[in-house]
Amino acid sequence: MENGSKSILFAQVMQGKPRMEINEDGLLEVLGKSKKNRKVFLGDVAKSVLHSLGSHETPKFTDEPNWDEQRWELECKSNDLKIKIHSGHYWGFGLFSRCFYNKIEIYGPLSARSRCVHDIVSTLGRNPWEAVMVKSFERVTGLNMVEHLENWNTLIKHAKNEMNEQILRLEDKVRKLRGVNEDAVELLQSADLSLEEARTALSDRNAPAVERALSRASNSIIQADPKTELVTTDILLDED
């Protein structure tokens, strides 16, 4: 569900772990020996969401669990995004981890939201919109399974398209540099190899690997471009 700078997604929880703690300030902490801190089952989906945020603030619970350690709400911010996650059960009275779902609200630029969602699915290793109990899932979320699939895939495809465009731009630069500098043949071959690795990583939904490969390709292209040498020479002459 898209609304300007906001995306709302629903996910099926499959595992309750990791089990963690909530300190006196309502902040998420690694499980320790404190008897004062409340315990919470974060679940596999929320764990993947927080991992996909990259560097972020410590998650804060806006609704802490009581007797049921898997019913809660939290918020978390990164540089570009703000995320709210609601965890609740939708069938079986919450007796098992698979009885739970997460409502994920993501606020921020479309590019950052798309990349985050792409990474969530990659980190999770499964399709989070596929429910254990379809009818109950549709009833509690207010959406049918086709709509869930579309909401997730729209963002995933946007992230893939952006990364693919980056690859295409660098491939175009490599083509334009061929035959320009005879000393740069090996550098361009290195760029080709890195771009091939980027495409493989993209097909594997491995966005960090795509970024690393693009960085290597870009570095090779910069070194192979004679204009870069001219700029460097001009800077050195100005300094002299």
Rank of each mutant, 00 (worst) to 15 (best):
K160V: 05
P226C: 11
L143P: 01
D192L: 01
P208I: 08
D172Q: 09
K157L: 11
A224I: 04
C99T: 15
W91R: 10
S122P: 04
D172M: 07
E182F: 05
A131L: 14
V174P: 00
S114N: 11
N153C: 04
E182G: 05
I222N: 03
N102D: 10
H86N: 13
V132K: 10
E147N: 10
K227N: 15
A131H: 08
K173E: 06
D172N: 08
L214C: 03
A112W: 04
A207G: 03
H89E: 11
D183C: 08
N153G: 01
S136A: 15
L187E: 04
A207L: 13
L187C: 04
V134N: 14
E182R: 06
E147R: 11
P128V: 07
A209S: 14
I156Q: 08
R216N: 14
S114Y: 09
G179E: 09
N164G: 07
S114K: 06
A217F: 09
K173Y: 03
D192Y: 00
N219D: 15
K157R: 06
V210K: 00
G92W: 11
N206E: 06
E130I: 15
H86V: 12
T228A: 13
A224E: 02
L110N: 11
K227W: 10
N206W: 06
G108Q: 03
R212D: 14
L110I: 15
L143F: 13
Y107H: 15
Y90M: 10
N127G: 01
H86S: 12
R216S: 14
D119E: 15
Q223A: 14
A198M: 12
N102R: 07
Q189P: 01
Y101I: 15
T141A: 03
N102W: 00
H89Y: 15
D192N: 07
A209I: 06
E171M: 07
P109L: 05
L110F: 13
K135C: 11
L143W: 07
Y101W: 14
Q166V: 07
G125A: 03
S97L: 06
R126C: 07
P208E: 10
K135R: 14
V174F: 01
K103M: 12
R178L: 06
V134S: 14
A191W: 00
I120N: 01
L188Y: 03
P208Y: 09
S190T: 12
P208R: 08
V117K: 01
K160Q: 10
E105N: 03
D225T: 06
M133E: 13
G94Y: 08
L177P: 00
P109C: 08
P226G: 10
F100P: 00
E130T: 15
L214V: 04
E147V: 09
V185N: 04
I120Y: 00
R175L: 06
A191H: 02
E105G: 02
W129T: 02
L110A: 15
T123F: 05
D225N: 12
A213M: 05
S87I: 07
E105M: 04
L193M: 13
N127V: 05
P128S: 09
R98G: 09
T123K: 06
S87K: 04
A112S: 10
G125H: 03
L170F: 04
S220M: 04
R139W: 12
